[in-house]
Design a protein around this nucleic acid. Structure first.
Lengths: 132, 132
DNA sequence: TTTTTACTTTAAAACCGTTCTAAACTACTT
DNA sequence: AAGTAGTTTAGAACGGTTTTAAAGTAAAAA
């Protein structure tokens, strides 16, 4: 399936700008990137795109599942008086957090830590959706 | 141990402002809050504090472990072309992310989901620190 | 086709959380 | 009491993201 079809299937008009983005992102190689990264790459490919369009496009792609956004990170810093090692439930609608004590969760199998690095803490976030 | 001692032990001068914040935060009840939340609470307790001081204070408290900051959320949105269910290593120094495939991790024991909610996805972030 | 309609792109401004600046102030040391 | 190092502050600046409103484009209707 080519990118034009992918966009159509996703319910998006295959505009010039969306095709440029799709050609960069939907080529089968996975990657992490910011809006600015992507704009730079668009620029250095000889095209150009307003930063607003880059954001619009990423939002659309995200909403129809063509890409994801990593870490449900809100733009506001959230602090916690609980300094014990623990985890969180996150109500994605409201941003509300609920503590999960360390004993309530257990990680059974862990991936190998990349060469030259140490495990410096694990954060588990269980995202919640209201039932019905 | 009173709050003045807690601050001294942490290597912080017990200034008027830090005592106000300590009185609100270090009372034995755990909570999540933003800088703005805290400033509002300070205001409604009859005190007042510049937002810069609130931030300075939270940074100091955090650095000496009196509080934590939740989710190592960078202020920049990071997108991911990998739309499969997966997790991440996070190099906290550089912000770099590395995928962890779903099979490489397994959660053995899970906490009970709060009444009225559904589990809407789990995100595991393993923070990395450079070795040596 | 041509016209119409709905959607999309854009530059620029606005926004909002956070950090910086530099001057005034305060806690601690001598 | 005097000195100095650390702290607070208002306001400006910053950086990522969203909004605005006008111009442009894709698809549907005529």
């Amino acid at each position: 399936m080519n990118n034009k079809e992918k966009l159509r299937n996703a319910g998006l008009r295959p505009t010039k700008q969306r095709m440029i983005v799709a050609d960069i992102l939907l080529n089968g190689f996975n990657r992490h990137f910011t809006a600015e990264n992507l704009q730079d790459e668009i620029n250095s490919s000889g095209n150009s795109m307003s930063i607003a369009t880059v954001y619009n496009c990423l939002k659309k792609f995200k909403n129809c599942g063509l890409i994801k956004q990593v870490e449900t990170s809100k733009d506001t810093a959230i602090f916690d008086t609980n300094t014990d090692y623990h985890h969180h439930f996150l109500n994605e609608e409201t941003g509300e957090l609920i503590d999960i004590e360390n004993e309530e969760i257990s990680l059974h199998k862990l991936p190998e830590i990349p060469q030259g690095y140490l495990n410096n803490g694990i954060e588990v976030i269980i995202k919640l959706k209201r039932h019905n």
